[in-house]
C-alpha cells in the first residue's frame, strides 16, 4: 500500500503527510466524541469508586501515551542512528513534548483520582513514581536538544540519551516496583488489571484509540514544522555564505 521506505524522503513525506492529516484529524475527532460520550454518559459509576472511575478514561490513556510516545521516540532514535534516515531524529524530537505533556497529564489526573480514593493527592505508589521518573527522562531528552546548537550533534546526542533511557525504563520500573512492595501501605486500593468491569473497558479502549489518533495528528503537524525549520536553516546558511 504505502511505500514506507520512500516516506523517509522528506519531500515525499510532506506530500503524504498533508494528504493524510485531514483524514487522521477527522477520525480522531470522531473517536474522541464517541469516547467522551461513552465515558461521561454511558459508562456506569463503579460500585466501589462511584463516578471517580470516569477519571480513568482520561488517566489511563494519558499514561498509555506517556509510554507509547517514549517507545516511538526511542524507536525513531535507534532508526536515526542505525540507518541514518533523515526524518528519524526529527520524529523523535517532534514526539518528545507530546510525551512529556501526557506524562504530566497522567500525573495530574492521577492525583485527582487519588485524592477521593486514597485521601491524598500523592502517594508514592509504584506507578505514580515510575511515571514521575519518566517525566524527568523526557525533560532530559528535550533539554539536550535545547543545549546543543549544531543539528547533527544534538540529534545524535539526544538519540543516544533516548536509547540509554529506554534500556533503563524497565530497570527503573522493576526497581520502583520492588521498592514499593517494601513500603506499600496496606490500605491502598488496587486499581489495576482484570478487576475493571467490562462496561468500563469499551469506553477506555475508545479513548485510548482517540488519544493515539491525536498523537498521530499532532506528530504529523510537529514533524512538518521540524522539517520546514531544517529547510529554512539550510537556506539561511546558504544565503549567508552568499
Amino acid at each position: 500500500m504505502v511505500n514506507w521506505h520512500r516516506l523517509a524522503n522528506p519531500k515525499l513525506f510532506l506530500t503524504w503527510s498533508r494528504r493524510v492529516l485531514p483524514w487522521a484529524a477527522v477520525i480522531t475527532a470522531l473517536l474522541l466524541a464517541v469516547g467522551l460520550y461513552l465515558s461521561l454518559f454511558v459508562a456506569p459509576p463503579d460500585y466501589q469508586q462511584g463516578d471517580t472511575v470516569r477519571i480513568m478514561f482520561v488517566h489511563v490513556p494519558s499514561a498509555w501515551m506517556a509510554l507509547f510516545t517514549y517507545t516511538v521516540m526511542a524507536g525513531a532514535s535507534a532508526a536515526g542512528l542505525i540507518w541514518k534516515s533523515p526524518l528519524s531524529h526529527l520524529t523523535a524530537k517532534a514526539a518528545a513534548p507530546i510525551g512529556a505533556s501526557f506524562t504530566l497529564l497522567a500525573l495530574a489526573t492521577g492525583a485527582l483520582w487519588g485524592q477521593p480514593m486514597w485521601g491524598t493527592w500523592w502517594v508514592w505508589d509504584a506507578r505514580l513514581t515510575s511515571v514521575l521518573i519518566l517525566f524527568f527522562l523526557y525533560l532530559g531528552y528535550m533539554a539536550i536538544w535545547q543545549a546543543i546548537d549544531d543539528y547533527t550533534r544534538a540529534a545524535k546526542s539526544a538519540a543516544i540519551l533516548a536509547l540509554v533511557g529506554f534500556v533503563n525504563v524497565p530497570i527503573i520500573k522493576f526497581s520502583v516496583d520492588w521498592w514499593n512492595t517494601l513500603h506499600q501501605p496496606a490500605s491502598v486500593l488496587r486499581l489495576d488489571g482484570p478487576s475493571i468491569h467490562p462496561t468500563l473497558l469499551t469506553p477506555l479502549f475508545v479513548m485510548i484509540a482517540a488519544f493515539t489518533g491525536y498523537f498521530i495528528v499532532l506528530l504529523l503537524i510537529r514533524l512538518e514544522r521540524e522539517i520546514l525549520a531544517r529547510q529554512a536553516q539550510t537556506l539561511r546558511r546558504a544565503q549567508a555564505r552568499g
Partner: peptide, 16 residues
C-alpha cells in the same frame, strides 16, 4: 543538564 540526565538513571542503584 548533566544532573538532569544522570540522576533519574541513578534511581535503581539508590533503591537497591
Amino acid at each position: 543538564l548533566l544532573s538532569l540526565l544522570v540522576l533519574p538513571l541513578y534511581i535503581p542503584v539508590l533503591i537497591f
